[in-house]
Nucleic acid binder design. Structure first.
Length: 235
DNA sequence: TACCAGGTCCTCG
DNA sequence: CGAGGACATGGT
């Protein structure tokens, strides 16, 4: 199956997604706006959001990010200095708040210790080194690292998440593939283009949320129904 | 009520 | 290695 063809079908059906949501200057709530992050604060917000959204709905993360923005805390050094309990309280809505507060703190202290507190320095590494650096931080796994690389550092890497795995299996393209195998399949089938990787992943999430849901998938109206092998696709 | 949501770490066999 | 549990809130 041609993954690029699937991409075009999704793009035709949903249109451009404008990932990742970011907050404009003077505002507090992150939105899909179809613009790449420009300033350091936007890049940091994506990094923080990537940690906060681990196994959690984005809606719950939005509130947490808004809290941090309203307090003016979306800043590496401020996040480094804030008391962990206070941080946990602010991000409570995103769940696992004690773990996530620790993970955010581990991340910012890492950037301060090794990269002068500037994401720009960390992100100037080549893609392999950057990924290894991110993965060495406790609490940052493959998906979180790759989300940071793709959406914040703006380098071409394909993000695999639960939606992607489910959709690929239901389509009948893969079965029991692990993260690295799935990622390889996408990256070897598509142009190495940050914009395409970003948009594709966003489209898969959209499809997973609205059609290829875990329970009660809406196969009848699914934009991919003609090429899908999901047993229950005729429901 | 139970399940799900843009995972990761740790432990055990 | 891979399975299984812990981490936690908010929506359906």
């Amino acid at each position: 199956m041609d993954l690029y063809k699937i991409y075009k079908l999704l793009l035709d059906h949903f249109g451009e997604q404008g990932w990742w949501p970011t907050t404009k200057e003077g505002e507090y709530k992150p939105e899909h706006r179809g613009e790449k992050p420009k300033v350091e604060k936007e890049r940091l917000e994506i990094v923080v959001g990537a940690i906060l959204t681990q196994n959690t709905s984005w809606k719950n993360v939005e509130k947490a990010i808004e809290n941090l923005n309203r307090k003016g805390l979306m800043d590496i050094h401020k996040l480094n200095h804030i008391d962990k309990k206070d941080l946990a309280r602010l991000i409570r809505s995103s769940g696992y708040y004690n773990q996530k507060a620790q993970r955010i703190k581990d991340f910012v202290s890492f950037v301060i210790d090794k990269y002068e507190g500037k994401l720009e320095n960390l992100f100037s590494l080549d893609i392999e080194s950057l990924r290894n650096e991110l993965l060495s931080i406790k609490g940052i796994g493959k998906e979180t690292a790759d989300s940071m690389i793709l959406y914040s550092a703006l380098k071409p890497i394909f993000v695999i998440d639960a939606y992607t795995k489910r959709i690929m299996e239901r389509l009948g393209i893969t079965k029991d593939k692990d993260y690295d195998q799935l990622q390889r399949i996408f990256m070897e089938s598509l142009p190495k283009d940050q914009k395409i990787f970003a948009e594709y992943h966003a489209l898969l999430v959209r499809l997973g949320k609205e059609y290829c849901k875990k329970r009660e998938p809406r196969c009848k109206d699914c934009p991919l129904r003609k090429l899908c092998k999901y047993p229950k696709s005729m429901v």
